[in-house]
Measured scan of single mutants.
Amino acid sequence: SDFTIRIGDRTLHLKNVSEEILKILEELLRRGIDFEELRKIVEELIK
């Protein structure tokens, strides 16, 4: 499924993301992860 994360004025667009990855990202966001850290993790996950 497609997913968009907005943190402040920044946006991260994800396409064809599995439910498992979404759950991980949601947990990281709940813990207050930094946007740049989140972006790096996402890039690793979707390689």
Rank of each mutant, 00 (worst) to 15 (best):
K23L: 12
K40C: 07
R6P: 02
S1A: 10
K47Q: 08
F3V: 15
G32P: 14
L22F: 10
E43C: 06
E37Y: 08
E37D: 08
E44V: 10
V17I: 11
L12Y: 06
I7M: 06
F35M: 08
L29W: 04
T11W: 02
L45W: 11
G32D: 11
F35K: 03
F35D: 04
L25V: 15
K47N: 12
I7A: 02
V17G: 02
G8I: 01
I24S: 11
L45V: 09
I33E: 06
K15I: 06
R31F: 04
L29Q: 06
L14I: 11
I41K: 08
L25P: 00
I24P: 06
K40N: 13
F3G: 03
L29I: 14
D9P: 02
T4F: 02
I46K: 09
S1K: 13
K40G: 09
I33C: 03
R39K: 10
L38P: 01
I41W: 10
R30Y: 07
E20K: 11
I5D: 00
S1P: 10
L29H: 03
N16P: 01
L29P: 03
E27R: 05
V42W: 04
N16Y: 06
R30P: 04
N16I: 05
L38M: 09
H13I: 12
L29T: 08
L45N: 06
E19G: 12
I46V: 15
G32Q: 12
T11K: 05
V17F: 03
G8K: 03
D9H: 04
I24K: 13
N16K: 03
R10M: 15
E19H: 09
T4Q: 10
S18K: 08
T4Y: 02
G8D: 03
I46Y: 11
S1M: 15
L45Q: 08
I7H: 02
K47A: 14
D34L: 10
L14P: 01
F35V: 05
K23N: 12
S1N: 14
K40D: 12
K47T: 15
V42E: 01
F3K: 07
L29A: 05
G8H: 02
I41F: 09
D2H: 00
E27H: 08
T11M: 09
E44P: 07
I41A: 08
L25W: 01
L22C: 03
E36P: 04
F3E: 02
K23V: 13
R30V: 12
L14C: 02
I21V: 13
K23G: 12
K47V: 13
L12T: 01
G32C: 14
R39F: 12
E36S: 06
E36A: 08
K15Y: 10
E37A: 14
I24D: 07
N16G: 12
V42D: 01
L14V: 09
N16C: 04
E36V: 08
G32M: 06
D9R: 01
R10S: 13
D2E: 02
F3A: 09
R31I: 12
G8L: 02
F3D: 01
D2L: 00
L28R: 06
I21M: 15
L28F: 10
R10N: 15
E27F: 05
L22M: 10
T11S: 12
F3H: 09
E37P: 07
V17T: 03
V17K: 01
H13C: 12
L14G: 02
R39Q: 11
T11V: 15
E20R: 06
L38Y: 03
E19S: 09
L25H: 00
L28C: 03
R6H: 15
R39N: 14
K23P: 12
I33K: 05
L12H: 03
V17H: 01
T4V: 14
I24R: 13
I46M: 15
E27Q: 06
K47M: 14
T4R: 03
T4L: 08
E36I: 06
I33V: 09
T11E: 15
I5W: 00
E27I: 07
E44D: 14
K23E: 08
E43M: 10
S18C: 03
L28T: 07
E44L: 09
D9C: 04
S1H: 14
D34T: 14
R10Q: 14
H13T: 08
G8A: 03
G32T: 11
L45R: 05
T11Q: 09
N16F: 06
G8C: 02
E27A: 10
L25T: 07
L29S: 05
K23M: 15
L22D: 02
K47D: 10
R31G: 13
E27V: 09
K23W: 06
S18M: 02
I46T: 12
E43I: 09
I5V: 09
K23H: 12
F35A: 05
E19D: 12
D34Q: 15
G8M: 02
N16H: 08
I21P: 02
L29Y: 04
L29V: 09
K23C: 06
E19I: 12
S1V: 14
R10Y: 15
L38D: 02
L25F: 04
T4P: 02
D34H: 06
H13N: 07
L22N: 03
D34R: 07
S1L: 15
D34G: 15
R10W: 10
L28Y: 09
I24E: 08
R6Q: 14
L38Q: 02
I46L: 13
E37T: 14
E37V: 07
L14D: 00
N16R: 02
F3R: 06
R39G: 11
E36G: 06
E20V: 08
D34C: 01
R31D: 12
S18Q: 06
R10H: 14
V42K: 00
L38T: 05
L25N: 00
I41C: 10
L25E: 00
I46D: 13
I21H: 15
V17E: 01
I21E: 15
K15Q: 07
T11Y: 04
E44Q: 15
R10F: 15
E20I: 06
V42T: 07
K15N: 09
T4N: 09
L28M: 13
R39A: 14
K15W: 04
E43N: 11
K40M: 14
S1T: 14
F3I: 15
I7E: 02
L14F: 06
L45M: 12
E36W: 05
S18E: 05
V42N: 01
L45S: 06
D2S: 01
L22R: 11
E19T: 15
S18A: 04
L22I: 15
D2A: 00
L45T: 07
I33A: 09
E27N: 11
G32H: 11
E20Y: 08
E19R: 06
K23S: 13
G32W: 04
R10T: 09
D2P: 00
L29R: 03
D2K: 00
L12K: 00
R30I: 14
E36H: 08
D34K: 12
E26H: 15
R31T: 13
H13E: 13
E20P: 15
L12M: 09
H13Y: 07
L12S: 01
L45D: 04
E43G: 10
R31E: 08
L14H: 00
E19N: 13
I41V: 14
E20S: 11
K47H: 11
E36T: 09
R6G: 03
D34I: 07
T4G: 01
V42A: 14
I5R: 00
R39M: 14
I21G: 12
E19V: 10
D9A: 03
F3T: 07
D34Y: 06
H13V: 13
V17P: 05
F35R: 03
D9Y: 00
I46F: 15
E19Y: 09
N16A: 06
K15D: 04
K40Q: 11
E26S: 13
E19A: 11
L25Y: 01
R6I: 15
K15P: 03
D34S: 12
L38C: 02
E26Y: 10
V17W: 02
L28P: 03
E43P: 07
E36C: 05
V42G: 05
L45G: 05
E37M: 10
L12W: 02
S18V: 04
E19K: 09
L22V: 15
F35E: 04
D9N: 06
G32R: 03
T11A: 06
T4C: 04
H13G: 02
L45K: 08
L12R: 00
R6D: 07
L22G: 08
R31N: 15
E27W: 06
K15V: 08
E43V: 11
I21Q: 15
I33L: 13
N16T: 03
E44W: 06
T4K: 04
E26R: 10
F3M: 15
F3P: 02
T11G: 03
R30E: 12
E27C: 06
L25A: 06
F35N: 04
V17S: 02
I24Y: 13
S18W: 01
L14M: 04
D9E: 12
D9S: 03
I7D: 03
E26M: 07
E37G: 08
I24V: 14
G8E: 03
L28G: 03
T11P: 01
K23A: 15
L28Q: 10
T11N: 08
F3N: 02
I5S: 00
I7Y: 03
H13F: 05
T11H: 15
L12V: 11
E43Y: 08
I5A: 03
E20L: 07
L29F: 04
H13P: 03
L12C: 02
I7G: 00
E26A: 08
E37W: 04
I7N: 01
E37H: 11
I46E: 10
V42C: 03
I24Q: 13
F35L: 06
E26L: 11
L12F: 05
L28S: 08
V17N: 01
R6L: 05
I24H: 12
E37L: 11
R10P: 00
E20N: 09
E19Q: 14
L45C: 03
E43S: 12
G32N: 14
V42S: 13
R31Q: 13
I5H: 01
L45F: 07
N16W: 04
E20A: 13
I21A: 13
L38G: 01
K23Y: 07
L25G: 01
N16M: 06
T4D: 10
L25R: 00
D2Y: 00
L29D: 03
L25D: 00
V17Y: 01
